[in-house]
């Protein structure tokens, strides 16, 4: 696991790195500490990370700027902050967990579990960030119809037909999306309320028809779960 620690207080940064090292052991491939927003942005541009541990109040700037930017990135974000009143706002951006300072080893371990495969965020995101013309645009989860996986990226399809590329994988999305979304196929996460019918096709295949008439494939292994949730 590759971890970026964005923290301007050296002792706290060292503590986070030490805890990650203890928890992940050999799994910890890289841990990088950035003390400023600019340094963190540079690290994100230069390297690939799986998790960013972000202090919401950097010395000279509000950490929310970096959080909004990270909402478009492929990695998960865990907030490590003393300002717990910003937790709800942070979760709207799709962060996986919010660790309040001072923290324990167990609390960091719990947060890191959420970013591993099968993990779920402590609170679900209410919006997703996409890059538009070099800027971050936030899309409300309520506007999302389904998300289609495309290799290392995903394509978010909105109710109005608009499509937006996003850096997160479907697995990463699964961790932060609310329960109203379900992964119906290895390549699709769909808003269940948008599914009107499920068609049984030849060869044991199934397709889900959405309100706009579009049909999406339903994976064999996921059919029963989808069916039970729809009924």
């Amino acid at each position: 696991m590759r971890i970026l620690v964005v923290e301007d207080e050296p002792a706290i940064a060292r503590r986070l790195v030490q805890f990650c090292s203890k928890i992940l052991g050999e799994q910890l491939e890289v841990s990088v500490v950035a003390e400023t927003y600019e340094a963190a942005s540079a690290q994100i541009a230069a390297l690939t990370f799986d998790v960013m541990l972000l202090d919401l109040k950097l010395q000279e700037r509000d950490g929310m700027e970096l959080l909004a930017q990270s909402a478009c990135e492929s990695f998960h974000t865990v907030i490590v902050s003393a300002n717990t009143d910003q937790a709800l706002r942070a979760f709207e951006y799709g962060v996986v967990d919010f660790i309040s300072k001072p923290f324990t080893l167990e609390r960091v371990e719990q947060a890191l579990r959420r970013v591993q495969p099968g993990g779920r965020a402590a609170h679900f995101a209410r919006c997703l960030g996409v890059r538009k013309h070099g800027r971050v645009e936030l899309i409300s989860i309520d506007d999302v119809l389904y998300i289609e996986g495309a290799d290392k990226y995903s394509e978010i399809v909105l109710k109005n037909g608009r499509r937006e590329l996003h850096g997160k994988t479907l697995a990463a999305f699964e961790a932060v999306l609310p329960a109203t979304f379900s992964r119906i196929h290895k390549s699709f996460i769909v808003r269940l309320s948008a599914v009107t019918r499920i068609y049984a096709l030849e060869g044991g295949r199934h397709e889900a028809e959405l309100k706009n008439g579009l049909r999406l494939p339903v994976g064999r292994s996921r059919f029963q779960e989808i069916k039970s949730r729809l009924i």
Binding site: A11, K57, N83, D85, P102
Partner: peptide, 18 residues
Amino acid sequence: QPHFLMNTLTTLAQIVEE
């Protein structure tokens, strides 16, 4: 304020060991 107090306590937790 939490930013000052909690950060100081977190630093303290680390410094106690170091």
